[in-house]
Write a protein that binds this DNA or RNA. Sequence first.
DNA 1: TAAAAACGTTGACATTTGTCAAGAGTTTTT
DNA 2: AAAAACTCTTGACAAATGTCAACGTTTTTA
Lengths: 192, 192
Amino acid sequence: MLEVFKKYINDKTSLPEEDLNEILSYAIIKKLRRRQFLLQEGDIWRYNAFICSGFVRTYSVDDKGTEHIMNFSPENYWTGDRESLTNETPSKFNIEALENTEVLLIKKQDFEMLCKKIPLFNNLINNILHKSFLTSQSRIHSSISQSSEDKYNNFVLKFPTIANRVPQHMIASYIGISPETLSRIRSQATKK
Amino acid sequence: MLEVFKKYINDKTSLPEEDLNEILSYAIIKKLRRRQFLLQEGDIWRYNAFICSGFVRTYSVDDKGTEHIMNFSPENYWTGDRESLTNETPSKFNIEALENTEVLLIKKQDFEMLCKKIPLFNNLINNILHKSFLTSQSRIHSSISQSSEDKYNNFVLKFPTIANRVPQHMIASYIGISPETLSRIRSQATKK
DNA sequence: TAAAAACGTTGACATTTGTCAAGAGTTTTT
DNA sequence: AAAAACTCTTGACAAATGTCAACGTTTTTA
């Protein structure tokens, strides 16, 4: 369980054993069953969260009750709500386990302290932020420039494992189209 | 000219004078006239760029010749193409001055060296990345959950000065709708 | 194992949006 | 000052997408 996190850190950077152990000493383990929530709209998010196993989604619900998926986070990825964490404001999002999931949590203050104390860890975290930013940019570019069909193909191309792991209507939600439209796009594509 | 940058840094962090001067010693000043390019598609972007005065836009051009605006960067903001800079791959984007513009450039290697050498500067830069990420997330959420009209209102609300500074069709491009649709949305809105 | 919930598909129809073309007003360039 | 380029609007029409409802299938839950 902690092994997953250790392996992740060791793959990403050469952190001394003792630093890694210090980080782990602040880790809180949380197990979620399918459909359980890690965060609910209106609550303030106060952690950094690493998915050791399983799979979660981050989504909002609008006035009409429609869900909009901001993110999928499988094992070896981080999740959370940066906005709520930073500003200490109620979150607009829900984070829900799509499968039974094990999460490693580190409290905001502990996390900040660790970043200050361990520069290599700080670098690692900033690298992740950097990658997340690039991913966001790519998604924005897709959203303003591509057709629905291209958005879907692009999604499957970039996230093949996720595409195979979630129901189709969640992909539709992620790319911002209705499930019916996605269904039609797919059936038309196979005719070709 | 350099004063703008100095003021920016001093407003954001309390950096010793000598550190600031070291940073400035690597600065390259570039002046752009309206419609001149800071970066052209296909070139590799090798700098970090701070806009001291003026205004630029980052956009791509698709197969049909349609432009898609990724970003507006007025004075006191950073610009560039992080993807091209990081991976040293040809950029998909153009960065063009919308007004006569003064840019402060720092070469990638110099910039990285400065970040390593001056932790406060590193923190500042990571804070900017953090804010950029939050802005991206907000734009993504808008793009998957809002109607065109709401996207427009949201844009004007969040970036009132930019909305007043650029032609309408560029706002349309930024939010991912056609200029005609935006024109109609606006005219219908005023009827209410 | 029976009931309930979730999932994907399809049809019918309404709504939104894009496309193309024209024109009037404005700004920029020469 | 005239010409050119740009900007926004509008109409007519086509294309894309959303909505609602129904249905069969699969998966989950009790």
